[in-house]
Amino acid sequence: MRKQVPLLLTFCAGMIPIVALFVPERHVSTVSTTLDSWLIIVAGFALLLGVVNVVQMNTNKIRRKTSGWPYAVVLLAGLAIMGTFGFAGAFGGFGGIATRLDGTSTPFDWLYQNAFLPLQGTMFALLAFFMASASYRAFRARNVEATILLIAALIVMFGRIPFGEMVTKWFPLTTEWIMAKPNMAAQRGIMIGAGLGAASMALRVIVGIERSYLGLGKGE
């Protein structure tokens, strides 16, 4: 039972969307959309499980004073503050969670706009610096392949800026060719292979051959 029930459920959950793709019958599409709704509900409960895990883990960290425990205090404080304003706002407390009608911010909105978004933006901005360091490493001409990569990258970079076009019109033209021909051909090759791989994996999951994601080993 421990093995059969999850495999049977997987088979049904995998087959229904496939059938719904080809069969427009109303009952089939109803079952398929209901399954999607169930996924959202299950994910909601799983999120609750996640929050419980975060609280447990970080409380233990603080109690044991393990390395980095002050970060756990900050995390729990953030969770408690945002959670309180969010929950209270959802039930009408503190003027709700969005901006008030007079244009002033509710506490939740203020924290979101002035703490959460800037922090998120900061993380995203780091990408530019990491990209520079990664490019430096990638474009070192250590061998033939890396040299070709370096030349292609230089042409594309010059082709994308007005200075490149000012130097010669061949920069944008060559850039266009590199992006549309060798680059696109390689990307499509990877995508076709990945698509077939994904379909093969999905088939293995549906027919119950691939079961490692369920925690079922070879012997089960």
């Binding site: 076709i192 990945a194 077939l196 791989g197 994996m201």
Partner: peptide
Amino acid sequence: IGEELYAASAYLSREPVLLGSIKGQDLTK
């Protein structure tokens, strides 16, 4: 890269049925 990710479980487990599915995938390719 791409399909290697999906072939990983078959490759690591060396189970014949999983490897067989990769062979079938190759035929379609």
